[in-house]
Amino acid sequence: MPVVVFRRNAEVYEAEVKENTNLVVRAGIKQFPFPHLRYECGMGKCARCACRVLAGGEYLPPPNWKEKKQLGARLDEGYRLACQLWIEHDIELEQDDLPVEP
């Protein structure tokens, strides 16, 4: 099972998740071990769930059109939308409080 390391507010959370897990979906149904994940719509429209991928990004598919629209140049900085990612491999994510502007 993939291990997710999630960093937010100077805290680090680590847990195993089932393969093909979407972190925002899990958070929405209260089956998510990371209490500080910031998210809202879950559909790639608001970018509130934007996270910087610190490790494991090579296993993710390329950004989809929603991520390109919402994140713009921040994609080059390693940002992705958590709501658009289905986790199949170990990954390390960091979420900051900076607003995401395309």
Rank of each mutant, 00 (worst) to 15 (best):
M1P: 10
M1K: 09
M1D: 08
P2D: 09
P2K: 12
P2A: 08
V3I: 13
V4P: 00
V5W: 03
V5T: 15
F6H: 05
N9M: 01
N9E: 12
A10G: 00
E11G: 00
E11K: 14
V12K: 07
Y13V: 00
Y13A: 00
E14R: 15
A15R: 07
E16V: 08
E16A: 14
V17L: 14
K18D: 12
E19S: 12
N20V: 07
N20Q: 13
N20I: 01
T21R: 11
N22T: 09
V24P: 02
V24E: 02
V24H: 02
R26G: 00
I29R: 11
I29P: 00
K30V: 02
Q31S: 07
Q31F: 01
P33I: 08
P33W: 08
P35R: 06
H36W: 07
H36D: 14
L37E: 02
R38V: 12
R38C: 06
Y39I: 05
Y39C: 03
E40H: 15
G42E: 11
M43G: 08
M43A: 13
M43F: 03
K45G: 06
C46V: 10
A47I: 05
A47T: 06
A47G: 03
R48G: 01
R48M: 15
A50E: 03
L54Y: 05
L54P: 00
G56N: 03
G56Y: 05
G57I: 09
G57Q: 07
E58R: 13
E58D: 14
Y59E: 03
L60V: 07
L60F: 13
L60Q: 05
P61I: 01
P62C: 01
P63Q: 06
W65L: 11
W65Q: 12
K68D: 11
K68F: 03
Q70D: 04
Q70P: 03
L71P: 02
A73E: 15
R74Q: 13
L75N: 09
L75M: 12
L75H: 11
D76T: 04
Y79F: 15
R80S: 03
L81Y: 06
A82L: 15
Q84I: 10
Q84A: 06
L85I: 15
W86P: 00
W86Q: 11
I87Y: 03
E88N: 14
E88V: 05
D90E: 11
I91N: 01
E92Y: 01
L93H: 04
L93D: 02
Q95T: 07
D96T: 15
D97R: 13
D97E: 15
D97L: 14
P99L: 15
P99G: 07
E101C: 08
